[in-house]
Computed example of a mutant assay.
Amino acid sequence: MAIAYWVVAGLLAAFYLYAGGVKLIRSREQLLPMMAWVDTTPMSAVRAIGAIEMLGAIGLILPPLTGIAPWLALAAAVGLVVLQLLATRVHLRRGDRHIALNLSLIAIAAVTVGLAMTWL
């Protein structure tokens, strides 16, 4: 189970470190081709989402790696599921039906939740 957790959580963390970093450092104009929703979202909210994504990624890796508060890995995984559920809602409200990535991330984060239960 530990190997499965590290593989799944590592992939999920890598995705969110990249996605969160992009939201933190790129301008609205640079983000628009990739993320149409940023046109109606304040940049402070986009930056906050990026920070949350990066913190979630760190939360998946550091607590189990250090053994300090390993329950935080479970909290991070649950948080990423909630984040993607909300992101899917935003896409659907905007009329954007391209939510395959969101649904995939929900599924991967849900698997991570199950695997993170081993740290409790």
Rank of each mutant, 00 (worst) to 15 (best):
M1S: 14
M1R: 13
W6I: 10
V7I: 15
V7Y: 03
A9Q: 07
A9W: 00
G10W: 00
L11D: 04
L11P: 09
A14R: 04
A14V: 11
F15K: 02
L17T: 08
A19Q: 04
G20W: 01
V22A: 02
V22W: 01
K23W: 00
R26M: 08
R28S: 06
R28F: 01
E29K: 07
Q30I: 04
Q30L: 04
L31M: 15
L32C: 03
P33L: 06
M34L: 15
M35I: 14
A36H: 09
T40L: 14
P42W: 11
S44F: 07
S44H: 04
R47C: 03
R47S: 12
I49S: 05
I52S: 07
E53H: 09
E53P: 05
L55Q: 02
L55A: 08
A57V: 06
I58C: 12
G59R: 01
L60T: 02
L60A: 02
I61A: 03
L62G: 03
L65C: 08
I68H: 04
I68V: 15
P70N: 15
P70S: 07
W71G: 14
W71P: 03
W71K: 14
L72R: 07
L74V: 07
G79N: 03
L80V: 12
V81C: 07
V82E: 09
L83M: 15
Q84E: 11
Q84Y: 04
Q84R: 14
L85N: 06
V90A: 12
H91M: 12
D96W: 15
R97V: 13
R97P: 09
H98D: 08
L105I: 09
L105F: 05
A110K: 02
V113S: 05
A116G: 08
A116L: 09
M117T: 15
M117R: 11
T118H: 13
